[in-house]
Design a protein around this nucleic acid. Structure first.
Lengths: 127, 127
DNA sequence: ATGCTCGTACGATACCCATCGTAGTACGGG
DNA sequence: CCCGTACTACGATGGGTATCGTACGAGCAT
């Protein structure tokens, strides 16, 4: 009411992400320690692209999903950008690889993901 | 009172640890996502030996320390054995390395581990 | 035995957090 | 212009958990 300027005026909606220096290891581990979030991260890693929230089919409501994405963003695991009505989510793999080498990769590998990244070329796995 | 058989009768005190198959990645990550516990794990890694609870100098009470050790044990990160009045804590590095290769190592490295003498020993490292 | 140290159990407390529902904003299309 | 889709914000709720204090059990030393 009367103050529609809630989020940020105009179309330049911006979300604040932590800078690499602000990304804490405990925060990353905590973010990854939730089954839902780990699943999200796995899907993002497999897709190796930016996915809108709506492309995730998880057994939770949208509110909860928003919450999880926020945790992932605030912990520095993903970056989010608005695009039209959608919000694209992308893993911050390289930044994390520089900060905490091997952590994300090994967790993804342990979680059943094949680090897709890699070789990308010959992968063909796909479960 | 009147039932002193509280903990376990006799001296055969035993603690139940999860088998490798029972160790869940989320549990490990969650255990490591707490600053106190991460610190404990780092110290254990640096010492590369079994340490009694009392050898940790953390800004929490003994009760809390006991709690953290229990979380670490139940998540499968450490193993505990009684020895006299002390309880020795050891990292389950190899088991974790088999289950989730690289996870513990990279987290320790990211946490600033360095194994003290680190320098990386030139080649011998890697566990 | 007595006492000391090490660790545990239990209860209490306060905080964090995953989840939901509802209401609302932002954007694009008929 | 109105509506539908995508996501958010807010409040509520229940469960988890980090913390403490106190009381206790187990083993060792004197």
């Amino acid at each position: 009411m009367t103050t529609p300027v809630n989020t940020a005026r105009g179309s330049g909606r911006q979300l604040d992400h932590p800078t690499p220096a602000e990304i804490r290891l405990e925060g990353v581990l905590h973010a990854l320690s939730d089954p839902m979030r780990l699943r999200i991260v796995r899907e993002l890693a497999e897709a190796d692209a930016e996915l809108p929230c709506s492309s995730f089919d998880l057994p939770v409501t949208k509110s909860t999903l928003t919450h999880h994405f926020r945790v992932l963003r605030e912990s520095g695991v993903v970056q989010q950008t608005y695009r039209g009505t959608a919000k694209l989510n992308g893993l911050r793999r390289e930044e994390l690889a520089v900060l905490y080498p091997g952590v994300l990769d090994s967790v993804l590998a342990a979680a059943g993901d094949r680090t897709t990244d890699s070789a990308a070329g010959s992968a063909t796995d796909r479960s």
